[in-house]
Design a binder for these strands. Structure first.
Lengths: 353, 353
DNA sequence: CAGCCCAATGAAACCGGTTACATTGCGCAC
DNA sequence: GTGCGCAATGTAACCGGTTTCATTGGGCTG
């Protein structure tokens, strides 16, 4: 039993130090620490004792190098702004910690080239990739997907090799929302999102399909509150004025509501309004917003679990493509009868700050 | 010039493959790829050509092992729920990508033991740690802070060795908010956050100091909307009723507003309300919420930059402790005169979904 | 008691980079 | 023409784990 002091901070403690302290070989030390079967109880105990005595912590990079596993998942999002993306991360984190995995987050704010560089720099750093990039112009980065890196896509179209993908049922949700508004009265207008965004396109398609023969009216927006406000201004001044509007996301619907209020158009009396996403704000504003709910955190969780299964080598039992269902949530902005009482159940959640 | 095909997917391309392809040694290949000075222009070009031809991507774990640098920052938060934490991450990510660093996010949901394990598992994975844990019972994890790992704390008290820390000026903000409400009328009550939370304690202290001699009235909350709602119910039924209430965070203020509305107490006419944090929802609800603004994303950014400097070995020029200033934002919930017109400037921001 | 089998153990190779140190070779001064 | 200095290059050690494969030794059978 050596009596060499730990000398913390001078030289990091390695597995060889532990082995020496325990009086065994590094192989036995490694086996003991990793819980492999072929070591005696006594050996294991001595190694564990030595490890805790020296405050040994394995060096992750070294382990990753020899095992070719990092126990880390890369999460690549277009942005971190807004409630949508933070919810995705939250769901993914939930699943990751349950599986003992770490999360490396990365954004592809800039151009496709930057995104490609970010993806390349993930080699050897992550075991798999969760990728979301609804903008078509970023799709080029698919070429940089290493073909040996398990990947799961969220709302991202990639031509060529089929990846496991999760798609929100944008079309179905938009269909339901538009039909709901149409069933209450008549002329439904639409505030669309960016033209080069896949989600936008699908929601627009759902709107068009719900309108059937009717022509409809589409105003161009860009998913920002301000663009919704401008659309609201425009709508308020039209003659004849549409009696309902379906916005391609909640932030635009909120901007629109504000413009309508400013212009003296009463909601839901003069015009009904619906959005898409059901971000937490939707139920807090007045009138509360009718919208299409996506369980975003659950989407993140499911996608990560699917990825973990792929990494473990499981063949996907289900289809490669999974559709995430949506749900219409009717609230004050389209409730012509009741005042849409907010239930206590809705009030829970959102903790801290 | 060898003509061996890349054979992608079979065996990953290593730097030795690149060296062989370029007809140089691995040392020269490494030097060329890392932009070191001591290589000829021709050598560098041949290596770069070979690398792109073979689609070579360096293995991060291997590099990390030999350089003892991972170019990754660990970010440890108590939770990912809510706008506060997602904003911290956004700010940190902004700074990180500017510095070419990656972000490994981790939460310490559970008990201190779990948090400690999470921290240990970061050895060899990150170059530094951004740590936030306002709950005192998690403070025990400070013992698990590796003493060779650069660390920056956010709103976290740690006894013993002094770490670089960022503290939000909770006391000053609470003082300003309470004084503002008091200046409008009189009796200000307070809805406090969790008793074991450092932020709560400081905001309570600010409230008490603003009240000076006056006794005040403190209701216990836990930072959730629901606890704010319960406090609002209680307040509405008091005789005599306080004429103002300062909640320790925005979510509780929002719950309180809801309860007051239900009970027929008009805001700001019968009672004025203020919160803390200025989360994005605060300006969207009606009446819009008077609150104390913290630039959360900026806090994340500054903390990360400070950490990066510490990793680079820079001695902290300033104090180890930095105070993050707050700003009182007066809105409809305490505006007795004007209707608090929302400016267009306030409407920008929040993009996508 | 000899022989065999199998579990436990240890020595050393390996993962894929970086880098200290030795070596080569070129240009220039004398 | 020879010797010197220095830049470019190559060889091999190293980072800290895991894992293959050889070796040891104890328990059991015949």
């Amino acid at each position: 039993m050596s009596s060499a002091p730990p000398r913390a901070g001078v030289r990091p403690v390695t597995i060889r130090d532990v082995a020496r302290e325990a009086g065994v070989s590094v192989a036995s030390a490694s086996r003991s620490l990793n819980g492999l079967a072929n070591v005696t109880q006594t050996t294991r105990e001595r190694v564990l004792l030595a490890a805790s005595k020296l405050r040994y912590v394995p060096h992750t990079a070294a382990r990753a190098l020899s095992t070719r596993r990092s126990d880390t998942i890369g999460v690549m999002l277009p942005d971190l702004h807004g409630e949508f993306f933070s919810e995705i991360i939250r769901g993914a984190d939930l699943a990751a910690r349950a599986l003992g995995l770490h999360l490396l987050v990365s954004t592809s704010h800039g151009d496709a080239a930057e995104a490609a560089a970010a993806m390349r720099s993930m080699r050897g750093r992550v075991d798999g990739l969760l990728l979301m990039s609804p903008y078509v112009d970023e799709q080029a980065l698919a070429e940089n997907l290493a073909d040996d890196l398990p990947t799961v896509l969220i709302n991202t179209r990639v031509e060529g090799r089929p990846y496991a993908s999760f798609f929100v049922d944008n079309h179905g949700g938009a269909l339901a929302a538009t039909r709901h508004l149409a069933s209450l009265g008549a002329a439904v207008a639409h505030i669309a999102g960016p033209a080069d965004n896949y989600d936008s396109q699908e929601r627009l398609r759902g709107y068009r399909d719900a309108m059937g023969g009717a022509k409809g009216l589409v105003l161009q927006g860009d998913f920002t509150e301000e663009s919704g406000w401008r659309a609201g201004q425009e709508l308020a001044r039209m003659r004849p004025r549409p009696t309902a509007v379906f916005a391609a996301n909640d932030m635009m619907a909120i901007g629109c509501l504000q413009a309508l209020e400013e212009e003296g158009v009463r909601v839901p009396h003069d015009m009904t309004v619906a959005g898409f996403d059901d971000i937490p704000v939707a139920r807090l504003i007045r009138p509360s917003l009718t919208t299409v709910r996506i369980s975003i955190a659950e989407l993140g969780r499911r996608a990560l679990e699917r990825l973990a299964a792929a990494i473990a080598g499981e063949k996907p039992s289900k289809d490669l493509l999974e559709i995430v269902r949506t749900e219409l949530v009717v609230r004050g902005s389209s409730a012509l009868s009741v005042g849409a009482a907010r239930t206590l159940a809705e009030r829970t959640g959102e903790k801290r700050q």
